[in-house]
Amino acid sequence: MGRYVVRRLLQMVPVFIGTTFLIFVMVYALGDPVAAMFGDRTPDPATAAQIRESLHLNDPLWSQYLQYMAGIFQGDFGTAFNGRPVIELMGDAFPNTIQLTLVAFVIELVVGVALGVVAGMRRGRLIDTGVLVLTLFVISIPTFVTGYLLQYFVGVKWGALPPSVSTEVRFEELILPGIVLAGVSLAYVARLTRTSIAENIRSDYIRTATAKGLPRRRVISVHLLRNSLIPVVTFLGTDIGGLMAGAIVTERIFNLQGVGYQLYQGILRQNAPTVVGFVTVLVVVFLAANLLVDLLYAVLDPRIRYA
């Protein structure tokens, strides 16, 4: 197992370098960052040249990349458009996004799996069809529609939950955006669980468990669930990164100053350090989540052994 983890960590290095370099190149293809800095005004050519020099913008791209990467490892992610260091922006943004992601993740896990189990056990019955139709709705309606609708009805009209997030980011403020963010993934989790449960419930070892005289509750919770959740875990794991990166729309609707908000600002202002910095961290999150899933896999399924 230890060897396996080391191997996986080593494999991450080329992936990390490749993705960051790709992002770096793409962001620089966006346009002239110095011009963007001055907005609509035309910059003084001497000042522009000076800024260019200080940001190493005249060096070849690969050299810029190396300098940037060297900075990252010293904790220097560069400066954002408003003059604040990017690392400070991260310090503000990531806690907010992580909180939102956690809320969404819990909703996705609990509701998604529960719906899937109920539907899978009653395959072909009314409740199964109901869950299928419901998930179809959720998948096909875009996030910003459900977001604004929920915000208006639940938040503003009925006042059941706060319609937007304040600067303190209280828990109850995150419930509504959490539901919106979890929505689509939740539908996938429910469907995946349903299929898996429906397939495993007819398996020979469930028949054995019943023949052993185990109570139905135990057959389901001990024998059926664990086997059925293996594919679901894969999806959930890869979805963590997706939730964090995909919160852009949700964060804008509910006015949460998180990763999505900062990324949006960075792209708008063509500020390379902000975009590259945030995406780099997200890449690491993705890689870590994937490794975690693979390790969890071995825990859930003893037939998988890593060496």
């Binding site: 020979d204 054995t208 019943t210 052993k212």
Partner: peptide, 19 residues
């Protein structure tokens, strides 16, 4: 079931819980 009347199935690999 299991206590008074027990059953042995054909394919032990699929009839035992793999995990």
């Amino acid at each position: 079931r299991g206590a008074k009347i027990a059953m042995i199935f054909q394919d032990a690999l699929s009839s035992l819980n793999p995990v």
